[in-house]
Computed example of a mutant assay.
Amino acid sequence: MRALWTALAFALLTLFSSGACQALERWETLPEPAPMPPANESGFAKVNGIEMYYAVYGSGDPILLIHGGLGNADIWASQVATLSKTHKVIVADSRGHGRSTRNDQPFGYDLMASDYLALLDHLKIDKTALVGWSDGGIIGLDIAMNHPERLTRLYAQAANVTTDGVDPGVLTNKTFAAYIDRSGKDYARLSRTPHEYDAFLEQISHMWASQPAWTKEQLEKITVPTAIVAGDHDEAIKREHTEYMASAIPGAKLIILPDVSHFAMLQDPDGYSKSVLDFIDGK
């Protein structure tokens, strides 16, 4: 893993020491999230031996938003502002991320899916639509496979189902390196263990080395209405892998978002929210 972080640090250095003065395309930018709106309810749910931060906004049919690896719930601020006008929106920090605690249990997508199901139980939500980004999309797929009765629809953006779906070029991508750097600063600001970012990275990296590892036969058993989504300039997930996922899941809709990358919800927040609502509301 040392080589991974060294490569990302080099890419970040390159970003600020070379052509940073040149105008960037939208998919090369990493905008700051908007401020989160006031929540109807927020707190910490005790689930699976951790304390999981959550917040709830708006009213109506529920939508659960799950962020990606190293991130936190605040990345969804623009989507929360839009979606909560017509839906109850739930966000949370995954275990070890943001304000949520972690323990010595090995990270796994099945465990993280269990955390979110326990959070839904805590909130007395039997069934929800789910929007997942990156690791959040993988968690959504895990729930769709193993607990389809808990989901109405799944919008999985920038997810992968095998480790070879990750583009090795991400190791030297400037935008992704900037995200890694920002995530470290966010961790120091939000976490109860602000000086343990490296230990957290080490722990979660063991999961990324071997997971997910789902077969085509497993994907073919998904019955939840699913959208497989990617930015047309995603720097982390191979396009052919995204297309494979959409073809393997029965009835899945393939959505390619224009002029955005892995960080589509930040680069085009209005377009992203519209895409989510169009799918969730069946338009």
Results as ranks from 00 to 15, higher is better:
L8F: 15
L8T: 15
L8V: 15
S17Q: 12
G19R: 13
E25A: 14
W27N: 09
T29C: 11
P37W: 04
P37R: 06
E41N: 15
S42M: 11
F44M: 01
G49V: 03
Y57W: 06
G58C: 04
S59F: 09
I63V: 14
I66F: 04
L70W: 15
A73G: 04
I75L: 06
A81L: 10
S84E: 02
K85R: 10
I90M: 00
R95K: 07
H97A: 14
T101S: 13
D104C: 07
P106Y: 04
F107K: 07
Y109W: 04
D110P: 10
L111F: 12
D115V: 04
Y116A: 00
I125R: 05
L130W: 05
G132L: 07
G137Q: 00
I139G: 09
G140M: 04
L141E: 03
N146Q: 11
L151C: 11
T152P: 06
L154P: 06
V166G: 03
V166Y: 15
D167Q: 11
T172Y: 12
T175N: 08
F176Y: 15
A177M: 12
R182A: 14
G184F: 10
G184S: 09
K185I: 08
D186L: 12
D186M: 13
L190F: 00
S191P: 00
H195T: 07
D198G: 00
Q203P: 01
I204Q: 08
S205I: 12
S205E: 14
W208I: 07
Q211M: 10
P212L: 07
K216Q: 01
T226I: 02
A227C: 09
D232N: 15
A236C: 11
K238G: 12
R239M: 15
S247Q: 13
A248I: 00
A252F: 06
I256Y: 02
P258F: 02
F263N: 08
Q267F: 09
P269H: 08
V276N: 02
D278T: 11
K283Y: 00
